[in-house]
Simulated scan of single mutants.
Amino acid sequence: MLTLTNIHYAYDQTPAVIDCNFTVAPAQRLAIIGPSGCGKSTLLRIIAGLEPGHRGTISYDGVDITQQPAQQRRIGLMFQDHALFPHLSVAANIGYGLHGQAKSAIVARVESLLQLVGLPHLAQRYPDQLSGGERQRVALARSLAPSPRLLLLDEPFASLDRSLRDRLLDELPQWLTREGVAAIYVTHDANEACQIASDMLVMRAGQIVRQGPVATLYNDPQSQFVASLLGMPHSVAYTATPHGITTLFGDVAIAAPAHVGRLLIPADVGMILDPNVPVALFHGVVTASFLRAPWQRLRITSLAGDAQFDYDMPQHLAPIIGTTVTLPVRLDRLTFVASDD
């Protein structure tokens, strides 16, 4: 098990990672998400042993590896730019980190990994003869070749087109499971994080602001920042009253914490399949409409004009701009989060 305790790192006295604490169990897949510049990549480099000078301790299975050189940590690292050696074949790239082993063992390991990533027919090609997706598969195979106990992946598929990225995201968990390796996957895309990981850690300005199982974070993001990062960007301010809450879209008869301040608009607003489910009615006007395939995205603005949220619906049902609408919202789907104001 990897354990980070009070990890702190600064560039020229500017904090980049601030008092980070978390663990990664054997074979666990953890995603780290956050906006650009929040410290995600720096944290990976610290774990890999590539950023000396940090405070705090890093241990693996109870052994302190804080001062251990990177090559002795048995931790693999894969970047977005794959960094293959252009003068080496695919097979030689994959086997590069296996020097010192018997030749027969190297050949067997390389062949096994080529089969794993679906490239046995490209063993003798060179990186400039490969597509972007093929190069990423080779880079991943090379990272797995020394049998690391932990693999660190820093937005490895960010440069690939959507269809290819989706295919690799489907395959990566299978490869990690077969190899029995734990992984930390850094991304700014919450959908990627959910495909790869069972647990998630959210960073903001160098600090961990939320961590736990993916489903827990989605069901209870606790803050407007985390909700937005997880693809739930639409919320409205409310005021708690003795009878429920008041919003610019209407009143809702539901108990709410007075100190939180924002009401998340659920993605399924307006989709009420059970007529017995209690709902609140939100009133607004369509002020913008554009295609967000396969849906039509409407911007719903309060009648007072001071609040808005976006709502996706089938294109053939979408009302035109200027239409006044009333949307039912299931009371059991409402979530309250802390405001970023």
Score class of each variant (00 low, 15 high):
residue 147 S to T: 15
residue 156 P to H: 07
residue 167 R to E: 12
residue 44 L to F: 02
residue 227 A to G: 10
residue 212 G to S: 07
residue 254 I to H: 00
residue 226 V to M: 01
residue 10 A to P: 04
residue 168 L to C: 11
residue 94 I to Y: 07
residue 4 L to H: 12
residue 322 G to V: 14
residue 156 P to L: 10
residue 247 T to A: 08
residue 141 A to K: 06
residue 50 L to P: 09
residue 126 Y to L: 12
residue 308 Q to G: 09
residue 176 L to K: 12
residue 191 N to F: 03
residue 179 E to H: 09
residue 133 G to K: 03
residue 36 S to D: 00
residue 311 Y to F: 15
residue 112 S to C: 04
residue 166 D to L: 02
residue 336 F to P: 00
residue 329 V to S: 03
residue 320 I to F: 01
residue 132 G to P: 10
residue 31 A to E: 01
residue 223 S to N: 07
residue 121 H to K: 15
residue 29 R to L: 03
residue 139 A to W: 07
residue 179 E to F: 11
residue 48 A to L: 12
residue 320 I to L: 12
residue 160 L to M: 10
residue 317 L to R: 14
residue 94 I to A: 11
residue 334 L to Y: 07
residue 196 I to Y: 02
residue 22 F to R: 05
residue 132 G to T: 12
residue 12 D to V: 09
residue 96 Y to A: 11
residue 270 G to Y: 02
residue 134 E to N: 06
residue 180 G to K: 09
residue 164 L to W: 05
residue 252 V to P: 00
residue 15 P to E: 01
residue 62 G to Y: 10
residue 170 D to I: 09
residue 237 A to E: 04
residue 140 L to H: 03
residue 187 T to A: 03
residue 156 P to Q: 10
residue 98 L to K: 06
residue 301 T to H: 00
residue 313 M to E: 05
residue 316 H to R: 12
residue 279 V to Q: 04
residue 184 I to C: 03
residue 266 P to L: 11
residue 189 D to L: 12
residue 25 A to H: 12
residue 113 L to N: 12
residue 32 I to T: 14
residue 52 P to H: 10
residue 49 G to P: 15
residue 136 Q to N: 09
residue 168 L to V: 14
residue 209 V to I: 15
residue 146 P to V: 15
residue 328 P to V: 07
residue 290 F to P: 01
residue 328 P to T: 12
residue 148 P to L: 12
residue 5 T to R: 13
residue 266 P to H: 05
residue 202 V to T: 08
residue 197 A to Y: 03
residue 255 A to W: 01
residue 101 Q to F: 10
residue 135 R to P: 00
residue 206 G to C: 07
residue 188 H to N: 03
residue 222 Q to C: 06
residue 182 A to F: 14
residue 322 G to T: 12
residue 269 V to Y: 05
residue 268 D to Y: 01
residue 105 A to S: 13
residue 157 F to N: 01
residue 175 W to M: 15
residue 176 L to E: 02
residue 19 D to A: 10
residue 281 L to W: 15
residue 19 D to N: 15
residue 283 H to A: 10
residue 169 L to W: 00
residue 101 Q to C: 07
residue 15 P to H: 02
residue 310 D to S: 14
residue 234 H to T: 00
residue 238 Y to I: 01
residue 332 D to Q: 12
residue 330 R to Y: 02
residue 111 E to S: 14
residue 234 H to C: 07
residue 141 A to S: 13
residue 178 R to C: 11
residue 227 A to F: 08
residue 110 V to W: 02
residue 61 D to P: 01
residue 126 Y to D: 05
residue 87 H to W: 10
residue 137 R to P: 02
residue 218 Y to W: 06
residue 230 L to Y: 09
residue 171 E to V: 10
residue 294 P to T: 08
residue 67 Q to H: 13
residue 22 F to K: 09
residue 16 A to K: 02
residue 317 L to Q: 14
residue 39 G to F: 01
residue 152 L to C: 13
residue 311 Y to C: 14
residue 91 A to Y: 08
residue 105 A to I: 08
residue 54 H to D: 13
residue 219 N to P: 08
residue 163 S to M: 13
residue 247 T to D: 06
residue 288 A to M: 03
residue 130 L to N: 14
residue 57 T to Y: 01
residue 6 N to C: 03
residue 243 H to Y: 10
residue 52 P to Y: 13
residue 59 S to C: 02
residue 292 R to E: 05
residue 211 Q to E: 08
residue 91 A to F: 08
residue 60 Y to R: 12
residue 196 I to W: 03
residue 341 D to K: 00
residue 333 R to Y: 04
residue 66 T to W: 05
residue 231 G to T: 07
residue 104 S to N: 04
residue 80 Q to C: 09
residue 35 P to N: 06
residue 280 A to H: 02
residue 32 I to E: 04
residue 113 L to I: 05
